[in-house]
Design a protein around this nucleic acid. Structure first.
Length: 531
RNA sequence: GGGCGGGUGGCGAAGAGGCUAACGCUGAGGUCUGCAAAAUCUCCAUUCACCGGUUCGAAUCCGGUCCCGCCCUCCA
């Protein structure tokens, strides 16, 4: 397992502190707004890495913080005339909705700044006691000069930074590069008591404190976006290592940016897309697929067509899942020896599984790994297309293959349960029956009219005469499968009678309402349109 | 100015010394089908920004040139 380490600028073999245990800390969002797509990238990629490590047998202890005390939160709360802590709380809840939608699993701990103030104060006191920090009028600063390794992560030297300093200069600081550990509060601002008066923590100290508190003085992997390398992570290293005298994190991982027209998507440029809005237009699994279809360190340019492409590509993979489900008649696959064609097939699946693992072992190359998943999809489809489903050997072979396929897809987290609004779709479909019925009535085909009436009665739906509208008289919506099956049945009869126009009317109408019909050798299959 | 990363087909994107330069989208054609869809099969980069060099061999290494992005200030 190799990981690209920002600290050394090289890919390195992963050697964990304890065998098969990984301590992982990923910087989480500042909760003053809904997250945008750029925020979603680290979320998704590190979730995928965590899943992969677990798949490889590691026990992963995963911590992701919330920055719920921050100037931006305070300002926004003031603008909206509300309490900063409840504003932060609200956006933490919204964050979880987005994360859940993207199939991002919860961290083992989601610590918040506001819940770790005493520990932060202790840390600042300790830094002062060790000479790494100094107080000026209620503010406490980190004395960068005192930490000789400063700059080792971002590859800069203190000398260069002092020379090229064009940072705002707070005259009270000993050096322009010194940064705040504790900020004094203005009148009426959110604050906590401290030895230096009322105030709140600076931005960087929280991560040092929470990482150490929940994971220990040295952790295996610390992750976050590229822009955090400097100053945030550089400062975290300085603080943590000044406190403990030990290496803070052995591997630093940073994801690349999402760009729009090749420009960084960021809040300050205003070119960001709120994830919530994107999820209105595209299925969440397509968004997740899009985010992992490119290597995590590369920049990723965003526009709608990319999500559309992701949707289609993922649809191909999911279609294989459907084909398998239809092919498989039972789950019995144990104790059957695969021979001949089945054995060759299984071997190629195993080969692709190994290729997948090899790709992921190389710095989590999800893009390459996905390629093998597509090849696996081809293999499975082709095998199914050429095989008799009544054979126990074929059943076993496909069963084993799809299990591997599904497991690997789940490692990437791209196989989510479809969340279709079935009620809405059923509501859209029922009028097709009404329309068919009224057409039949015009033609004097009363047998057919009665057939439909009986069916509707069965599923507790009324047709309002004259208007062709369907009205439910049950509190429960009819099962979508039952309704679609009925339409398929009607269409089959029409096809037998070669009344293709009407048959196509049914297929087209369903299509418009989100249901796709496919005529296969095994009969008609249906699926939801947006997969 | 300093630090970092990148330029691969119509598009997206892997590949980091030697297999036919993965895979996806798009497009073309065949099989299947009443048609469509799905599936399947085949085709679509003599060439990897440019110029030199190292090497038996370079998209991959080295030097130079030209572009592009990011960080150096809150930002994932």
């Amino acid at each position: 397992m190799k990981i690209f380490n920002t600290l050394t600028g090289k890919k390195e073999e992963l050697r964990t502190l304890s065998p098969y245990k990984v301590k992982m800390y990923v910087c989480g969002p500042t909760t003053y707004n809904y997250i945008h797509l750029g925020n979603a990238r680290p979320l998704v990629v590190f979730d995928a890495f965590r899943r992969y490590l677990q798949f490889r047998g590691y026990e992963v202890n995963y911590v992701q913080n919330f920055t719920d005390v921050d100037d931006k939160i305070i300002n926004r709360a003031r603008d909206e005339g509300q309490d900063p802590m409840s504003l932060a709380e609200r956006y933490i809840n919204e964050y979880f909705k987005d994360a859940d939608a993207l199939n991002v699993r919860r961290a083992d701990v989601h610590p918040r700044v506001s819940e770790n103030i005493p520990e932060i104060i202790e840390a600042v006191k300790l830094l002062m006691a060790k000479g790494y920090a100094y107080e000026v009028q209620g503010d406490v600063f980190f004395r960068v000069r005192a930490f000789s390794d400063y700059g080792k992560l971002s590859g800069r030297s203190l000398k260069d930074m002092l020379a090229g300093a064009r940072v705002e200069v707070d005259e009270r600081k000993e050096e322009p590069v010194d940064f705040a550990l504790w900020k004094s509060a203005k009148e009426g601002e959110l604050c906590w008591d401290s030895p230096w008066g009322r105030g709140r923590p600076g931005w960087h100290i929280e991560c040092s404190v929470m990482a150490i508190k929940y994971l220990g003085e040295t952790i295996d992997i610390h992750g976050g976006g590229n822009d955090l390398i400097f100053p945030h992570h550089e400062n975290e290293i300085a603080q943590s290592e000044a406190i403990t005298g030990k290496p803070f994190a052995n591997y630093w991982m940073h994801n690349g940016f999402i760009t729009v027209n090749k420009e960084k998507m960021s809040k300050s440029l205003g070119n960001f897309f709120i994830l919530r809005d994107i999820l209105e237009k595209y299925p969440a699994d397509a968004v997740r697929f899009y985010l992992i279809a490119t290597h995590y360190r590369s920049p990723l340019d965003f526009d709608d067509s990319k999500l559309e492409e992701a949707r289609k590509a993922l649809g191909r993979l999911k279609n294989t899942l459907d084909l398998c489900k239809e092919f498989k008649k039972s789950n019995i696959e144990i104790g059957i020896d695969l021979e001949g064609k089945a054995s060759d097939f299984w071997q190629s699946i195993e080969k692709l599984e190994n290729d997948f693992i090899e790709a992921m072992d190389d710095d989590f190359n999800t893009a390459k790994a996905l390629g093998f998943l597509f090849e696996m999809s081809h293999q499975i489809n082709a095998y199914i297309a050429a095989s008799n489903r009544d054979s126990a050997v074929n059943q076993a072979a496909v069963g084993r293959a799809v299990r591997v396929f599904t497991e690997l897809g789940n490692v990437l987290g791209i196989f989510m349960e479809g969340r279709h609004n079935e009620m809405q779709i059923v509501e859209g479909i029922l009028p097709i029956l009404a329309e068919l019925s009224s057409d039949a009535e015009t033609e004097g085909n009363y047998e057919f009219v009665n057939n439909i009436r009986d069916f509707l009665k069965e599923i507790k739906v009324n047709i309002e005469d004259g208007e062709g509208k369907c009205v439910l008289y049950s509190s429960r919506y009819p099962d979508i499968n039952v309704v679609v099956k009925k339409l398929i049945e009607i269409r089959s009869i029409l096809r037998q009678k070669k009344e293709y126009q009407k048959a196509d009317f049914i297929r087209d109408s369903l299509r418009k309402r989100g249901i796709i019909l496919e005529d296969t050798r095994e009969g008609v299959r249906w699926k939801f349109a947006d997969l």
